[in-house]
Computed example of a mutant assay.
Amino acid sequence: MAHTLYVVGIGPGNPEYVVPRGLHLIKQAKVLVGSERALEDFAQPGQATFPIAKLAPMAEWMGEQLESNDIVVLVSGDTGYYSLLPYLKTKFPNNPIDVTPGISSMTFAFARLGEVWHNADLMSFHGRRPEEKDLYYAEGRKLGFLTDPEQNPAYIARYLIEEHGWPKDTKAAACERLSYEDERIERGTLEELQKLEGFGHSVMVVLG
C-alpha cells in the first residue's frame, strides 16, 4: 500500500493558530517537509526534515522517503489558497493525500482589521498579477491582495490610483508577520501607503 502525504496548513505561522489535528500530525511525523521558518517552529527531535526551496530536489527526496514512510508537508496559510497542494497532487498521483486546512493569511489579516471578507474580492500580486478587469474601482468595494517584494503595498497603492482610478483617500492597510510578536500593521489611505517601505511578503487590504 502506498504511503500517504499529509498536507497541513499552518495558518499564519504561530503554532497557536494551527488546528489540533494538524499539530498532532506534525508531532507524530517521521518525515517533515516545510519552509525553513516552519521547520524551526514545528520540527521535533528525531524527525527527518527537508526545507522547501527548489521544488525538483524536494520532490526527488520526498519520492525516496515515500517508499518507506508517510510524509507531513507544512504549507503556510490554508492548504487551498495558493499553496503547494496542486504541485503535490501532480507530482505524486499514486500516493493518497490527506489534507488538514489552516487559516489563510488573507482571512487572518481581515480578522486583525476587524473586517469581514465574505464581500471582498481576493487576489494575488505574489509572483503574478490580477486581471486588469478585476481591479476596477467601485464605491464600497473591498479588496485583499497577497504581495511580493516588487509588487508591494506601495506599488499596488500607486497602481490602483494611477491606472484604475481609485481615490487617493481610499482606506487601506498593509499587514506582515501576522501572528508573530513582531507583527506589523500599517493603516492609512492609498496615498499614504504609496510611501510605505518594505512589506514585501504581506497582505494588503483595500476598503473602498
Rank of each mutant, 00 (worst) to 15 (best):
I97T: 15
A53V: 13
P86S: 08
G114N: 11
K171W: 00
G13Y: 01
Y137K: 05
A173M: 07
P86V: 08
V73C: 15
G165P: 02
L23M: 13
A173H: 06
L39I: 04
S124E: 03
F108L: 05
T49R: 12
E67D: 07
A29N: 05
T100C: 12
R37Q: 11
R187E: 14
R21L: 07
T79C: 14
G114R: 09
G9L: 06
E183H: 09
P86E: 09
L178E: 01
D134Y: 03
Y137S: 02
T107R: 11
H201L: 15
V19P: 00
L196D: 10
I156S: 00
G200S: 12
E162R: 10
K89A: 15
G9T: 07
I156P: 05
P101M: 12
Y81G: 04
I156N: 02
A29C: 03
Y155C: 03
G208T: 04
R129F: 02
G102F: 07
Y136C: 06
G198E: 01
G46T: 02
V19C: 13
K54C: 06
A48Q: 15
K30S: 14
H3G: 01
G188P: 11
V7H: 04
P15Q: 13
L85R: 10
G11C: 10
L84D: 04
V73L: 15
S104C: 06
M62I: 11
